[in-house]
Amino acid sequence: MKILVCISNVPDTTTKVRFVDDYKKLDITGIQWVINPWDELSLTRALELKEDPSNNIQTVTVAHVGLVSAEPTIRKALAIGADDAIRINAEPSDSFFVAAQLAQVLNTESYDLILCGIESSDFNGSSVGGMLAEFLGYPSVSSVSGVKVENGQFFINREIDGGKEIVSITTPAVAIVQKGIAKEPRIAAMRGIMMARTKPLKVLEPTAMESLTEVVGYEMPKPRAACKFVDSENPRQLIELLQNEAKII
């Protein structure tokens, strides 16, 4: 069986976000680019599954829609342990466009399980995984917090409001993952970094496809009013403020 992990290339989560061009574009000066945290965890889980021979997983491939500038991030995924990578050479203009490009890959190559993150930390689209599944007519399970294989079948844990469910799913399928899928993201070891240089990274040209949405401008969050401090000896005053000023309890 084969697993595909879709990875998004995002600013490091501690980045101070700033914009240029009259709040129309992200200021990329000094930004460290990383694998989207969920995708890093998906990749980690895919590799764990592959390491157990009884799961019978032959390869773990990563796919990314983006320009050549994203290749260091893709190489990082290879260094962590992915077997090979595919990059579709296009600016990821919106989720629909990205999903359509990924679907193109899957029309020529088949994978049993495709892993996407529940959201990218830049666009916060919560979109690509579900869209990809619909393009392909595959089933999808969202809010996935665990994946395992038993007798050649995938069993998936998902969060539901007020609990958890274990479901089985017919493959090929898309699993859209969130917390719980793996404990800690795996980091690249020296050997992995050396090997990554020679692992295959295939570049595909995009198919013609429009985008359905477009960011016309960015805004910074409204600054919150300054914090009102209450004496630590008198927390009663806090409760009074919450009752009478904020009127919230």
């Binding site: 919106d94 989720s95 629909f96 999903a99 529940i118 916060n124 689209g125 919560s126 979109s127 690509v128 995984g129 579900g130 869209m131 599944a133 619909e134 393009f135 999808s140 399970v141 969202s142 809010s143 998902r158 969060e159 539901i160 409001d161 859209i176 359905l212 949405t213």
Partner: peptide, 24 residues
């Protein structure tokens, strides 16, 4: 809703109806 089920269905619906999605 942008909850578990909304997140699961909305993107699929977007492709099915070719309708742009504003999530969250």
């Amino acid at each position: 809703s942008n909850n578990n089920s909304g997140k699961a269905v909305a993107p699929r619906l977007s492709v099915s109806l070719k309708a742009g999605l504003g999530a969250g």
